[in-house]
Every structure is written in structure tokens, then in C-alpha cells.
């Protein structure tokens, strides 16, 4: 998480690009389709979304139907990826897990996105003591290694989905707040913003009408990275037994369940891991492509 936040540090400094609105305007889609990252990322991520949404249709079996005497089968026509310890179809579980993990990651990313962007642009634009306080709070949260604070929070709030949402709500906003703050600060001194303010527009109005649209693309690019990082964290929590609880299929618990068999039936842990890697590649490329298209990264 920290790593990705810091990845955008450099881009925060380039936020000045944004305050030259509409110069040499090229439609977003034109630029997007011209970016190989965008095309590849959007295709891969789109495929994942389709799979997740259509899991009930695509899955050959009910992911929870057991066959107690047919556990740990290897690949066959009926079970392409074999079965798990309880005789459940691994392919079906993999597809449904995509649904679970993606849903949780997107849900968990929503509040921090809104809150972080709001806090960031207000602090950066208003400045003064507001900015000072927000900056100190950001510094404080950042001082905790991401996994340490998330695990401690999940521990405090309780395992499972509510704990995950609470934990990310409390720490996830910081990434956006930092970047948005820096961008909003740059905008504050930009000529056209000063003009808008001089023209009698209220601060909230300037923020919503002028600052927000300019910084939002950057926040959306960051959102993609954050969804990925939250997803990896959700899977990690699942592996540690602090995340999604059985029987809900989740890639992390699938890896954990397969761990005992790793020397004999390696695919039990490897396949869900590869699914996460796929998600990672698609989201990274997509974020990259969005950045290219919006020229923010």
C-alpha cells in the first residue's frame, strides 16, 4: 500500500499539468484507445468483471455442493481444475471467489475514496490550520505499516467483512488525501482559480466546480491501484483467517486450504494465487492506461 502511495508521489509533483485545462484538447477516448496499457488493462479487467458478474452462469457447478467421498480429485472433464478437500469444484469456487473478492475490494475502496478526496482538496485548497491538522493526521496514519494497522483494526473490530470495511475506512483515505492535497494546493495559486474566486464564487463552489474536476482523474487512477491493494490485503487477511469466512469462496482461504497439500497438490494454492496475479496485472495496466489517457500519471 505504502509502495503504491509512494508511487504516486512523483505524480503529485506533476499535478501542475492539470491546471492547463483543455489546451490542445484531444478527446479522452481517443487518447485512451491510443494507449496500449489502457486497451490491454481495460480488456483484462473487463473480462474479470464479466466473469465475476456472470459467475452463477459460467460456473459448471454450485460452488458449495460437496462430495465427501470425491475430495481432492485431479483435473477431469467434469471438474476442469479438480476438487477441493470437500469435493467441491475448484473452478466454480474460483469464479465465485472473484465475485466475492472484487465486491469486497470495490466496496471497501468506496468510502476512503470519497472521504480522502474531500479531505485532501479541502485541506490543500483552504490551507492554514485545517491543512496543518490534516497533514499531521496523515503523517500519523502513514507512520503505521499498512498491514500492522489493518490487522490490528480487524482484530479490534472483528474478523470478516465488517472488520475489513472498518479497517480500510480508517486507513485507506490517507493515500487520496495526500495526493489530492498536493494537487489542490498547486491549483490554489493558479491564475484561473484566483480569477474564479475574485469573481465572487464561494469556496465550496470553486472546490466542487473547478478544483474537483481537475484533480478527479488523478484520484481515479489512484483508486484503481487502491482497489488492487485492498484486494491483495483482503486475500492476505483471508489467508491469515482474519478475512472472508467459510464457506464463502475467497482466493485467500482457498490458498490457505491448499497449503497443506502444497507438495503433493500444488495447484490448490497456485491457481487462486494466479487469479490474484491476473487481477493485479489487469488493474495495474488499467490504472496506467487511465493515467496516459488523462495525462496524470
Amino acid at each position: 500500500m505504502m509502495a503504491a502511495r509512494s508511487a504516486t508521489r512523483g505524480s503529485a509533483a506533476t499535478a501542475e499539468d492539470v491546471d492547463v485545462p483543455r489546451a490542445g484538447y484531444v478527446p479522452f477516448w481517443r487518447r485512451a484507445l491510443g494507449s496500449r496499457s489502457f486497451v490491454a488493462g481495460a480488456t483484462l479487467f473487463g473480462a474479470l468483471l464479466v466473469v465475476a458478474l456472470l459467475a452463477p452462469v459460467l460456473a459448471p457447478h454450485d460452488p458449495s455442493t460437496q462430495n465427501l467421498t470425491g475430495g481432492l480429485q485431479t483435473s477431469s472433464a467434469d471438474h476442469l481444475l479438480g476438487t477441493d478437500q470437500l469435493g467441491r469444484d475448484i473452478l466454480s469456487r474460483l469464479l465465485f471467489a472473484a465475485r466475492t473478492d472484487l465486491r469486497i475490494a470495490v466496496t471497501a475502496a468506496a468510502f476512503p475514496f470519497v472521504f480522502g478526496v474531500a479531505v485532501g482538496i479541502i485541506a490543500g485548497f483552504v490551507g492554514g490550520w485545517v491543512d496543518a491538522v490534516v497533514s499531521r493526521v496523515i503523517d500519523t496514519v502513514i507512520a503505521f505499516p499498512f498491514y500492522v494497522i489493518v490487522i490490528a483494526l480487524v482484530f479490534a473490530v472483528g474478523v470478516g467483512e465488517p472488520g475489513i470495511y472498518a479497517a480500510f475506512a480508517l486507513v485507506g483515505w490517507v493515500g487520496y488525501a495526500r495526493v489530492m492535497r498536493a494537487s489542490a494546493r498547486t491549483l490554489r495559486s493558479a491564475g484561473w482559480v484566483a480569477a474564479a474566486r475574485g469573481g465572487g464564487l464561494s469556496t465550496p463552489r470553486v472546490l466542487v466546480r473547478h478544483v474537483l474536476p481537475n484533480v478527479l482523474p488523478q484520484a481515479v487512477v489512484l483508486l484503481m491501484t487502491e482497489i488492487l491493494l485492498i484486494m491483495v490485503a483482503v486475500v492476505t487477511l483471508g489467508y491469515l483467517g482474519l478475512g472472508v469466512q467459510p464457506p464463502t469462496p475467497d482466493w485467500g482461504t482457498m490458498i490457505a486450504d491448499g497449503q497443506n497439500f502444497i507438495t503433493t497438490k500444488w495447484w490448490l494454492s497456485a491457481v487462486p494465487g494466479l487469479a490474484i496475479v491476473y487481477t493485479g496485472i489487469s488493474l495495474s495496466l488499467f490504472a496506467d492506461g487511465l493515467g496516459d489517457a488523462w495525462r496524470v500519471a
Binding site: I255, S269, V277, L285
Partner: peptide
């Protein structure tokens, strides 16, 4: 290298062990 971003640390650990 961005592939590394999407790889859970614990999973890489498992692979390295094997």
C-alpha cells in the same frame, strides 16, 4: 515488475519455499 504489486507476499513466500 508491476506484476509484483498484485502478488500477495504470503503467496510468493509459499512459492519460494516450494
Amino acid at each position: 515488475p508491476t506484476v509484483g504489486l498484485g502478488m500477495p507476499t504470503f503467496w510468493i513466500g509459499l512459492l519460494l519455499i516450494i
